[in-house]
Design a protein around this nucleic acid. Sequence first.
DNA 1: GTATCGATTTAGACAATGTCAAGATCGGAG
DNA 2: CTCCGATCTTGACATTGTCTAAATCGATAC
Lengths: 132, 132
Amino acid sequence: MTDAILILRQCGIQPTPQRIAVVECVLNGNGHPTADDVLISARKTCPTVSRATVYNTLNLLVEKGLIGMQTIREGAVVFDPNVEKHHHFIDDDTGDIYDIPWDQLDVKGKDKLKDFEILEFQVIMRGRRKKR
Amino acid sequence: MTDAILILRQCGIQPTPQRIAVVECVLNGNGHPTADDVLISARKTCPTVSRATVYNTLNLLVEKGLIGMQTIREGAVVFDPNVEKHHHFIDDDTGDIYDIPWDQLDVKGKDKLKDFEILEFQVIMRGRRKKR
DNA sequence: GTATCGATTTAGACAATGTCAAGATCGGAG
DNA sequence: CTCCGATCTTGACATTGTCTAAATCGATAC
Ligand SMILES: [Mn+2]
Ligand SMILES: [Mn+2]
Ligand SMILES: [Zn+2]
Ligand SMILES: [Zn+2]
């Protein structure tokens, strides 16, 4: 349970009911929601919130580094409450996206790519999550 | 210079002027075109080709394994004439996508992810291509 | 309490991506 | 030539995302 108001203030963003709802949806929600997921979810606590405000707020949060944005799903960008470096696993059956901790994988050979200046990278895996 | 007609026949797809134009655009063109790139490009040799036919043909080619489809750019899927396993580097300045040969990188640690059955994976890198 | 003013939100227009269905077109077999 | 199945085109439609103008909000000043 994050304190959305505090988080917004610390970034110099005026906390409003709409922005609080958006922050709570993406930070307390589970997973990697699309903007539309956030809109639907935010409307449960703030029924009049508009699509434009959800997009504005999400983009603002990305700018401030409070959340990430990932281009790994077809059709829509997803937002990511996890701002630490990490990899992703996408379940082809369900579409669910799982975080893989950064230190679980090691990518060897990047330094041999002389033609490219790598600013960031990640491993993207697809398959099925094993039922347990 | 690929023989589009032959390639289509080998996959059991009737070669038509429209399909030939699409195949030539994505196979002989350079890089990772979007459907819209292909549409514009195909219209140079086949001015009346429609958007639906371009999408239908591209999806058909993907189904048959003749080209790949990558979800690595915002806004639109890109198609990939390279069907071998490989990684990608995206130039943040230009948006250009470069193929990185499969054996240039080695991802260690995948076997420790007990909860996931990895069917495919790739490394996605972002940054700037060094001018040379 | 009321007027004012800037910040915020809303509703709807708009462009782009992608899918789909209905009708037109094409091309080969009879 | 006619018929018929395959293919193509057109335009409608849904979705994602951005933008603008007008409405709303809230704090301060009077
Ligand atoms: Mn979703
Ligand atoms: Mn393009
Ligand atoms: Zn993540
Ligand atoms: Zn590629």
